[in-house]
Design a protein around this nucleic acid. Structure first.
Length: 271
DNA sequence: AACGAGACCTGGCAGC
DNA sequence: TGCTGCCAGGTCTCGT
């Protein structure tokens, strides 16, 4: 769900809300990663949604007088309902619009967030520290090498650091490193410029392939539930422990890095 | 400055 | 059937 492509898919699925005006705000459980602000209803009522953008894994809802940040955490989903329906157990937050549409946040683990960032949202402490978007032209091999020069940690955990580059989650870190034939345990500062260029290219291609796949699962996404995701079928290594490498046939390995699972091929990813 | 561990939560599943 | 332990797509915060 909330990998970068899913967040972008979610954003695209919400575009019918643009130019709609907030009629009501419903907070059933304010205890997300940070509390949903008490005064959100009074802030948002009567404001019109002017645009929906994305930065890293945040969805930015631009209203007349500022920006609402939405984050899905590990388990969050946003459903767009044609009209108000009975809330289920983990439906914590609704934005009800005057035309009857309802944006509903469902998040069992409550690692997500709903925050008011105001008009100067770019200075918000969660946004101001973020690295470049992975698909931006600013994210190059030279940029990567320059910024990992002093990093001795493993390249896998390093590319998941949002201060360096955003949007590379646990799945795409493993997948991109496989495609680039870089071993996830290699110290970041040991990568050559050539390797940095290859890795950046593979991060970009992995994410854009997944974005295309996310787009194609748009319909499922707002369906009942259990959307298996389409890009999953293209995984080279993620979740494939013990299964044969799609390139060399040797079993995929699974190690822990920074308390997260990493999947890789010990033959294809020697460097 | 950078690293690693801990923290925040619930649900699903394997194994006993 | 029920219990226990482990795992899960994120990322901030803190101690070293």
């Amino acid at each position: 769900m909330p990998e970068l492509p899913e967040v972008e898919t979610t954003r695209l699925g919400l575009l019918s809300l643009v130019n709609q005006t907030v009629a009501a705000v419903v907070v059933r459980n304010a205890s997300l990663r940070w509390p949903i602000p008490d005064n959100l209803a009074s802030l948002l009522q009567g404001q019109t949604l002017r645009a929906l953008t994305r930065r890293a894994k945040y969805i930015l809802a631009h209203f007349d007088h500022g920006v609402l940040l939405l984050h899905l955490g590990m388990s969050g989903r946003i459903c767009l309902l044609a009209e108000n329906e009975a809330a289920q157990k983990h439906d914590h937050f609704d934005l009800v619009f005057e035309d009857g549409q309802v944006l509903r946040l469902r998040d069992p683990r409550r690692f997500g967030a709903v925050l008011w960032a105001g008009e100067h949202y770019a200075q918000h402490k969660l946004l101001s520290v973020l690295g470049p978007e992975p698909l931006d032209a600013a994210f190059t091999g030279a940029y990567l090498q320059q910024h990992i020069r002093t990093r001795t940690a493993a390249i896998k955990t390093t590319i998941m650091d949002g201060h360096l580059v955003v949007g590379v989650g646990n799945i795409y870190a493993s997948e991109s490193l496989f495609r680039a034939r870089v071993n996830p345990a290699t110290s970041a500062n040991k990568l050559s410029l050539q390797q940095c260029e290859t890795l950046v290219a593979e991060i970009k291609s992995t994410l854009s392939d997944a974005l295309k796949a996310g787009g194609s699962s748009l319909r499922d996404f707002f369906g009942t539930d259990g959307n298996p995701g389409y890009f999953q079928q293209q995984y080279f290594v993620y979740g494939r422990t013990g299964e044969p490498c799609r390139v060399c046939g040797k079993p995929i390995l699974n190690i822990k890095q920074g308390q997260r699972s990493t999947f890789y091929c010990g033959v294809c990813q020697k460097a």
